[in-house]
Structures are given as C-alpha cells and as structure tokens.
Design a protein around this nucleic acid. Structure first.
Length: 573
RNA sequence: CGGAACGUAGCGCAGCUUGGUAGCGCACUUGAUUUGGGAUCAAGGGGUCGCAGGUUCAAAUCCUGUCGUUCCGACCA
C-alpha cells in the first residue's frame, strides 16, 4: 500500500469528544469515524486490525471444535417471547417493527436463535456435542455509550454456543473454550486475567470474565497473588471482619443528632469511627421494600444483594418512596416496628454497641446491639471487596485492579433449552434438556484494550500479530530520485517476501512521515536516507523498543521477515 | 433515568456579557525555497454559526422550543 493512496486521515489535534487513550489514538491515527453515539465506521487501518483479530479467533475456535455459521441480525419477537427475554431484557433491546407492524429486534446476543435451530435439528445424543459460533455485528441500545469502541451501541462480537448431553460434557466444552480464550488474548498481545464472574441476567451457574488490565477499564477485579484467586469485585467473596472491640454490652440510648443525615456527619458529631455505625439502606426489590444493614465504612454490592434476594429488579429507594412509607431518609434504622424485611451483611452480627438511625428525624441510637434490639431476617455477604482485605480462599492479601472485559464465558446449563424445548434422546431412549454454554468476545473492545495497553506519547504500538501492516518505508527526501528508486525497490522486495508494508511516498517532509508512522504504530519503520545512498545501509527502527538496526539494503527483506516472525512468537502460546 | 457542559470551516478554538460586514491556528490548493522528527514565505479556496420559532430596522449573539454530542452517577448479555 502506498501512503499517498491510503485512506487514513490522521489528525494533529485531539478531537474534543474523546476521553480515553484508545479512542483518542484511533481518531488521531485516522482509523475510526463516529457516525452517532456509540456507532462507528472502521476505516481501513482499524478494519485490518479487526480482521486479524477475527482470524485469530477463528483459528482458536476451530481448534476448540467450533464451527462457524452466521445468523440474522434481525430477530422476530416470537422467539424472544419464548425465552421470556422480550419482557426481561428492557430498553437495551433495540426493537423495531416491520411494515405490517410485527415486532422485531436487532440481536444483542443469539441464545434464542441458536436454541431455536437446535430444537429443530437435534434429536439424539449422537449429534452432540456441538460448538457453533459466529462473528457478527450486535446491537444494544446502551443508556450511556462511551469511550469509543469500549461501549458501543453497535459492535462486533464473536459469540459461540455449546450444546452437550450433560454437565460433565459441558465442563469439557467450557474448559476447551477457557483455553481457547487464553490463546486468543495472548496472541493479541494483551495483558489479561481470567476472573470468576457473576452470570448476571443471562443466568446459569459458572462464569469467567477475561479482563484486560487497564486503568481506564470500567470493571474492577480482586485478586490474590498468594493463591491465584481472581474474581470480579461484583462477586468476590470476602470474610466478615471482627473489629475485636472488648466492651460490655450497654443499654441502647436514643440521642439527639441534629442535621446528621450521612455517616460522615454522624461520625463527626459523635466523634466515632464510621465502622461503629450501622448503615441502613432501603431498596425496592421487585417493588417490595427491604432494608439492608451494612457497616458504615462499607459499600453495598448490589450484585450480591440481587443474588441474595433472588430478585429481578433492584432499585435504591428514593426519598419519595421512603416518605410515602412513613420513613425518614437520613435517619433510617432497624429498631422499631418495621414492616419490611431486614437483610444484613455478615459483619453486622459481630458488632456490639453500635450506632444506627433512630427512625425519627434528628435522632440516632447509640449502643444498639443486633439480636437484642432488632431482628435480622437474613444474613449474607453483601459488601464490596476492598483492597487489602484477606483472601477468603487462603488468607493472603487481596489486591484490586481495574480491567476491561474483553470476553466472558458462561455455563448456561438448561436455562434456554428448557424454556425453548431443545431436548435430545439418550441411548436408553430417555429425553433430556440439552446442556448449554455460551462464550463471547468483543472484537472492537479487544482492539481498543490492546491500544490502552500499548501506547506512548507518540501513538499506538501494535503487537506484530494484529498490526494493520508490519512495516512502513520512509524515504527521507521525495525529490531525490535515487532515494525514491531505492525505496521503490525495497517496497517491491518486501512485498515479494510476503511482508505487509506501506511505502510512504507522500510529498511530505520526513518529520511528518515519522510522526505519522509513530502515531499509526507500525511495528517496524525502514528509513531510506543518506546512509542508504552512501553506504548501502537501511535503518530499521523497532516501534516498541526504539531499537535501531542498520542493515545492508539487500539483506533488509530477510531481516524484516525475521523480525516479524520473532515478534509474532512473543505472544504465541 | 438523575446531575453538568457543549454544538461557529475537516480538526482545535475565539467572538455571545454590551445585537450591526463571521474570525484565528492547524489541515487543504498554487508557486518558490527547504528535506532525518509535525518547515518558511507569498497568494488562494472553504462556514445555511445544530435545527425551528420568536423579539428587533437588524440575531452566531437575546428569548422559547427541539435535536445532537460529551462527561459524572445510576444501570448493564
């Protein structure tokens, strides 16, 4: 490819709309155009990267027994009604009607469609296992699309679905895909970690998220270097911490705390540590009011709460709702004749002589004690893990890091096959629900995550495996015919050798070409200048290390191929 | 959905308070000089000021509405 003809409109200034590094760099490097919020065109450079990532995915999926197919983007409502998700999915499901007024949606995921097919086609255990996948554009009408390709409304996803005869067979599919995912992200050059995850609305038990470690990530993970435990903070289990306060149990007392509606204010007013206060928080769980008790210095983990309550919808109760129920926001407490259920974090029973809301404006209790002063209906691990806590598996120190979720794998079990009637007959003639798994990779998000991890002040640093091109040739002077001819010859020789190379034949000064080369992030840059003319030496600069090699012109193609295969192997498994 | 901000040339921005010929830098075109890290000089081209109403002799500027975009939060197979 000649740079003079390459559609890659690079920018010198950062577009105001971009906040995170990967988004800025993709816009500046002329790789991406926004069409609407969360909807983008991939320009040639980024599409080449996307295709390379997809090729890697295909290889690994096929190796894990996958077969590629392609399902429609437009789904009829009936299939989604069968699974119940037409109602459950909410506004994120992008709905539309055809000319006859029939309901359809744009596919956000394809469990329904694939299960619909399997129901019709699979009859016998002899036809299983099946592992089917596609790479396709998905639609989710996100409330808040952001960060460029990180969270789009239209995005490219690889989705695989496995069909097995029983849980043991599913475990094999799951393990194969876990391995395949590890290979995919390694080959893409990502620093990532598989973590235990919540299986969310999709249901089933058992899930891992593959997290690319990055400060800009929207997700948090907790991990233990001692035993290797790693989990999304959404589910990371923690042990209750006993504050070991040796005090006699005192009588509770209602005291005046004017205008103290927050933990901070109460803590300052009474001059006590927030960890001696019980925070009472009300939620509406499937429209039923409940109260959560948690230590004043802790945060409620709503995922854990949702799972503990086994509810579909969970919302923080607004002041309006509380007032209607005759409650005083800011002074909520468990003591007194409350009509709602109280669920407490498992640290609460360990507290003695604690402070809590008085149930009436401007009053708090001190020296309250669980059990004696109020009844707890349910106890569960409800709090958000914090860095520095003890690992619940081995007692080691837990660390917390941010990550980008580039993939997730689920054991769906029979959630969809049951609802949609996908069954098979075993060798004894008995009918069973097919046991399913599903496995997703965000292709664009993977590309963005690679950029988040591989960049410097000058631009992107592509890992060789997914770089849009392996190398760029920069002739230093476009008026010097000899240099232009040498560059042209080198370009032909590299192409013949099988390298993917761009010849920067633009009528620009060398500085401009160097800047663009760094910005776009070609792993190798070949400079043809005075040294080439006078001494027959070509300079090869490695984008990642900055290392500069001077190679005789005729040996350059061989050296370039060597560098390509060497760098490709770095991240091979 | 709650909070905030912004929409003026491809990109980055000024002008708006106090209404009166639409500006700057980059990019683009032409010519000359220059050629190892975003050159210099000269001459040019490009904008219904998001859109729709309203006020006014006159609106980028004031008022109302609307659409779009971004950020924080909530939410999230």
């Amino acid at each position: 490819m000649r740079a003079s003809n390459l559609y890659a409109p690079t920018l010198r200034e950062i577009p105001a709309e971009a906040e995170i590094i990967s988004h800025r760099l993709m816009l500046r490097a002329g790789m991406l155009h926004k069409v609407a919020a969360g909807i983008y065109s991939y320009l040639p450079l980024s599409w080449r990267v996307m295709r390379k990532i997809m090729d890697i995915i295909r290889e690994e999926m096929d190796k894990a027994g996958g077969q590629e197919l392609c399902m429609p983007i437009v789904h009829p409502a009936e299939i989604w009604q069968q699974s119940g998700r037409w109602q459950v999915y909410g506004d994120e499901l992008w709905r539309l009607k055809d000319r006859n007024g029939r309901d359809f949606c744009l596919g956000p995921t394809h469990e329904e469609i694939i299960t619909h097919h399997i129901k019709g086609d699979v009859r016998s255990y002899k036809q299983l296992p099946l592992r089917l996948y596609q790479i396709q554009t998905k639609f989710r009408d996100e409330r808040r699309p952001r960060f460029g390709l990180m969270r789009g409304r239209e995005f490219v996803m690889k989705d695989m679905y496995s069909f097995d005869i029983d849980k043991e067979a599913l475990d094999i599919s799951y393990a194969l895909l876990h391995r395949a995912y590890t290979n995919v992200f390694s080959r893409c050059g990502l620093d990532f970690r598989p973590v235990e995850a919540d299986s969310g609305a999709i249901g089933g038990r058992g899930s891992h998220e593959f997290m690319a470690l990055a400060e800009s990530g929207e997700a948090e993970i907790a991990y233990c270097d001692t035993c290797g435990y790693a989990a999304s903070t959404e589910i990371a289990s923690v042990n209750p911490v006993n504050l070991n306060i040796e005090e006699d149990i005192k009588e509770k007392e209602l005291i005046n705390t004017p205008d103290c509606t927050t933990i901070q204010e109460v803590s300052a007013f009474l001059n006590i540590n927030p960890n001696r206060i019980v925070k009472s928080i009300c939620y509406e769980a499937d429209n039923k009011l409940i109260m959560v008790l948690i230590r004043g210095d802790r945060q409620v983990n709503e995922i854990k709460l949702k799972n503990a309550l086994n509810c579909l919808e969970l919302n923080y109760a607004t002041d309006e709702v509380l007032n209607k129920a005759g409650l005083n926001p800011g002074y909520l407490g468990p003591i007194g004749g409350n009509s709602f259920e109280i669920i407490a974090d498992d640290e609460i029973p360990l507290m003695i002589n604690h402070v809590c809301g008085g149930g009436q404006k401007d009053y708090h209790f001190i020296n309250a004690n669980p059990g004696r002063d109020y009844k707890i209906e349910r106890i569960a691990d409800l709090r958000l893990v914090e860095a520095g806590e003890k690992c619940s598996a081995c007692g080691g120190l837990l660390k917390v890091a941010r990550g980008i979720e580039v993939g997730q794998i689920f054991k769906l079990q029979t959630k969809y096959s049951e609802k949609m009637g996908a069954r098979y007959v075993d060798e004894k003639g008995q009918e069973h629900d097919i046991v399913m798994g599903c496995y997703g990779i965000g292709v664009g998000r993977t590309m963005a995550a690679v950029i988040e991890q591989n960049n410097d002040e000058n631009g992107i640093i592509w890992p060789m495996n997914i770089a849009p091109y392996h190398a760029v040739i920069v002739p230093v002077n476009d008026k010097d015919e000899e240099l232009v001819n040498i560059s042209e010859g080198l370009y032909q020789a590299l192409q013949k050798a099988g390298a993917e190379v761009v010849l920067d034949d633009r009528k620009e000064r060398p500085g401009v070409k160097f800047k663009d080369a760094d910005l776009i992030g070609f792993p190798l840059r070949l400079t043809v200048g005075k040294k080439t003319k006078n001494e027959g030496l070509v300079e090869i600069k490695l984008r990642k290390s900055g290392e500069v090699l001077e190679i005789p012109l005729e040996e350059a193609p061989k050296k370039v191929l060597e560098l390509i295969s060497k760098q490709e192997k770095v991240n091979d498994f």
